[in-house]
């Protein structure tokens, strides 16, 4: 499968990059690690006139602890850097753990945190070659007007399948976005729309530049559990992240987020309240699992049956809570 033709733009500074974005807006796609974009371009899911390769914008790389203010992570930081960062492992362990489950070592060397956050939503009826999609009929997310997954409706349910965002949500991460009118900051939980096609709140002229983890989230116990058929390569078919803090054996604060079962990664509402002040045991963990399963809305966008994936959210949430407590 050949790549469609495009012009490659290679800015060296953030300003230059933002300049290109302002100039070409919706005729352009951002390329970070390219591990998601390039396969999709081969499948002709994107045929942009320009590709903005931001890999040489050094200011977007690296993990910078900021005294008393948490840490700032550049969007271009590779997932393997995050996976192996001693600082993150010590203070925000759920993030490196989640990063380490993405794809395979080779892809983690290329793939970036920004790319993982901005990752296109996935669907078996969409992530296919042009020939395939022609044979099947186009759908709402690309070139068509119906949905194969939920035929009656007019909404796209393509599923968000990134591994790090549930961990980031648990850590109350914020993202920094650069655009023609400067920088803006947004809690990550407000970044996603919850629909499968226009899945993120990022204007075509904008770029994700940094991720901030607040000081308040430091040193939480954390666990990420991922459902995949193979131990490597596979995207999550369901994923659960949990963080918690204890004092005197009681949970003082906790958050739980799920991924790969909805068009957005989601914090499970009510989980914090359910856990707060309690001593974790099997029954409590199970109750949290049930709650998480209610938040999950898996559909036939992915392998394994939706019922199974929802059930695994329940099991994995329970296990994650118990494991984090250990």
């Amino acid at each position: 499968m050949s790549l469609p033709q495009f012009r490659l733009l290679r800015p060296r500074t953030l300003d230059e990059a933002v300049g290109y974005l302002a100039k070409h807006t919706d005729k352009l796609r951002v390329l970070a690690g390219g591990t998601d974009l390039i396969p999709s371009m081969r499948q002709k899911l994107f045929e942009p006139e320009y590709v903005l390769d931001i890999r040489h914008v050094v200011e977007l790389k690296g993990i910078q602890p900021r005294a008393g203010e948490g840490v700032s992570i550049g969007a271009l930081t590779s997932l393997s850097t995050i996976e192996h960062s001693d600082f993150l492992r010590r203070h925000y362990p759920v993030l490196p753990e989640a990063a380490a489950t993405v794809a395979s070592p080779v892809l983690r060397n290329m793939g970036t945190l920004g790319g993982n956050i901005c990752l296109d939503t996935r669907c078996l009826w969409y992530n296919q070659s042009l020939t395939w999609r022609k044979g099947c009929g186009f759908c709402i997310k690309k070139d068509g007007d119906l949905c194969h997954v939920a035929p009656g409706g007019s909404k796209c349910w393509a599923v968000f399948s990134g591994d790090t965002p549930p961990a980031l949500l648990c850590l109350n991460a914020e993202v920094e976005i650069a655009g023609p009118s400067g920088l803006r900051r947004l809690p990550l939980r407000e970044f996603y729309t919850g629909v499968g096609d226009a899945y993120r709140k990022l204007r075509p002229s904008e770029l994700l530049t940094r991720v901030f983890l607040p000081e308040a989230s430091v040193d939480y116990l954390g666990v990420y559990r991922k459902l995949r058929v193979r131990g490597s390569i596979d995207y999550p078919l369901a994923g659960v992240a949990v963080v918690l803090k204890r004092s005197n054996g009681h949970v003082s604060d906790a958050r739980l987020a799920i991924t790969a079962v909805n068009p957005a990664p989601l914090l499970v509402k009510g989980a914090s309240e359910m856990l707060a002040g309690k001593v974790i045991d099997e029954a409590l963990a199970e109750a949290v699992g049930d709650l998480a399963a209610k938040t999950a809305k898996p559909l036939t966008t992915s392998a394994l049956t939706p019922e199974y994936r929802r059930e695994m959210i329940r099991v994995f949430a329970k296990r994650a809570v118990l494991a984090a407590n250990n």
Binding site: W125, G137, T300, L304, T305, P306
Partner: peptide, 10 residues
């Protein structure tokens, strides 16, 4: 292993 109650091609 997939439970496609989906529409599929016409």
């Amino acid at each position: 292993s997939l439970w496609f109650r989906g529409k599929g091609p016409e």
